[in-house]
Simulated assay, not measured.
Amino acid sequence: MGKVKPLGLLAVAALGYLAERPMHPYEMYQLALHRQEDRVVKVSPGSLYRAVYGLEADGLVLASGTDREGARPERTTFEITDLGRHLLGERLRELLSTPTNEYPELGLALSEAHELGAEEVRMLLETRILRQQAELADLDRRMTWALERGIPRVYWINVPYSAAMLRAEIAHLESLLAEIADGALAWHVPGTRAPLHEQAATPPVSAQPTPST
Rank of each mutant, 00 (worst) to 15 (best):
K5Y: 00
S111E: 12
L196N: 06
I80Y: 14
L10V: 03
A194Q: 13
L177C: 10
H34Y: 12
W156I: 03
L139H: 09
M28P: 05
P104Q: 15
A164N: 14
A134N: 05
T144F: 05
K5G: 07
A57R: 14
E179S: 13
A51Q: 04
W187H: 08
L185T: 10
R128D: 09
H197V: 11
L10G: 03
P6Q: 09
L88Q: 09
N158K: 14
A168N: 12
D38Y: 03
Y49G: 10
M1D: 06
Y29F: 14
E27D: 12
L110D: 02
A186N: 06
M28A: 11
G89H: 04
I80G: 07
H114A: 00
K5A: 08
E119L: 09
S47L: 06
Y17M: 07
L139A: 08
Q132D: 01
M165W: 12
E126P: 00
R35S: 02
Y49K: 06
S111R: 11
E120V: 13
G16A: 05
E94V: 07
L15D: 08
G59S: 09
A19K: 11
E74V: 13
E198M: 13
Q132I: 06
L7M: 05
K42Q: 11
L92W: 01
L9K: 08
Q199R: 15
S97H: 04
A200M: 12
S212R: 07
K42V: 00
M1A: 14
